[in-house]
Amino acid sequence: MASLEYRTFTFRTVNSSPIELDLVRDTSVPTSSVSPKTLVFFHGGGLFSGNRRSRFPGLPLQLLLQRGWTILTADHHLLPESQVEDMVNDVKHLETWILKEGRQLGLDPELIAVAGSSAGAFVSCLALASWTKLRPRAFYSLYGMLHTESDWYGTVKDESTSFAGLPVSSLLAEHFEQYFVPGNKPVWHDTTEMTDPRGRVRLFMWLLKEGKISSMITSSLNAATGKNSPSDLITSSFPPTVAIHGTADSVVPIEDSRALVAALSRAGVENQLVEVSGADHGIVPQDRYHAEIEKSVDLLEAYI
């Protein structure tokens, strides 16, 4: 049985407040089996919600932990109080921390992969495009939100639509006015749950319902990078990539991952997409799709 050890560190300080990361290891894995490989993982949440421990570990990360990997998972600034530029600064500070502190903690900077689930794949692309000294060996995109300029994120949804089983009719504008008050303090660690009708998870879904995601993210990304899409950040310097995505994803369409691998192919970067037939967002219940998820983990390990 897994026995996870979390060690928490501060990698950036903003206005005297720490932004933190966790190093996670499975202490039940025999020391002789421990790998020097590290996965730098960014959480999902649409860029508006979540934290370094939310939606963790999940089957893909469990499989890597069981194989002796170390998982490094970090918080980052969240929209709408912050902007993509703040996220870029977060990942730059994270790079500096890994290079300065990593070896003392048993991390090998030469054996690192970057991963993200949903919007975490977006943040992964920011890291891969921003890092100048750390060169990850692979990128692992889990149902990545990577085609944010598409019509899906920019059109109003019909009231009969549902997102991962949540009817959009339950998402009411008055529940989210609090997030757009001028002068709100920046947020980088959100603990609200899907069940909270006024929580940040539903804030993202309300914005998706209203077709506001595309304009908000595109303008913020452009201001930070000069690009309009995460796919525009991809160059030949990106590492080999494994993507996994459900064909019935009702939150982040599988077209996002197809756009990712198309952009990688145009840049001459090796890539593989594992399409999981009939799976919704998060590829849940993950045990049902164990074979496909394990295949994606095997492909990732092959790149390292």
Rank of each mutant, 00 (worst) to 15 (best):
T10R: 02
T96R: 11
T241P: 05
L203T: 10
S82V: 07
S237K: 10
P18R: 12
K212T: 01
W206L: 08
L64M: 07
R266A: 15
T161K: 05
V24R: 01
L111W: 12
T96M: 02
T225M: 02
V24H: 01
A127I: 05
A262L: 06
R137S: 14
Q66E: 15
F11R: 06
K209I: 04
T192G: 07
E101T: 12
T191Y: 09
G106F: 05
R137L: 11
F48I: 05
A259G: 03
D190W: 13
H77G: 00
E174V: 03
F9K: 00
H245K: 00
S17D: 09
L203F: 13
T27D: 14
A2F: 12
T192D: 12
F139W: 15
S257C: 01
S160C: 08
I254K: 11
P57K: 00
P57V: 02
S130G: 06
V187L: 14
F180M: 06
S229R: 02
L23C: 05
I234T: 02
A2P: 15
G211V: 13
G165E: 00
G46T: 10
G226C: 01
F163N: 10
D256K: 02
N271L: 04
A173P: 09
G226D: 06
T148R: 13
I71N: 10
E301F: 00
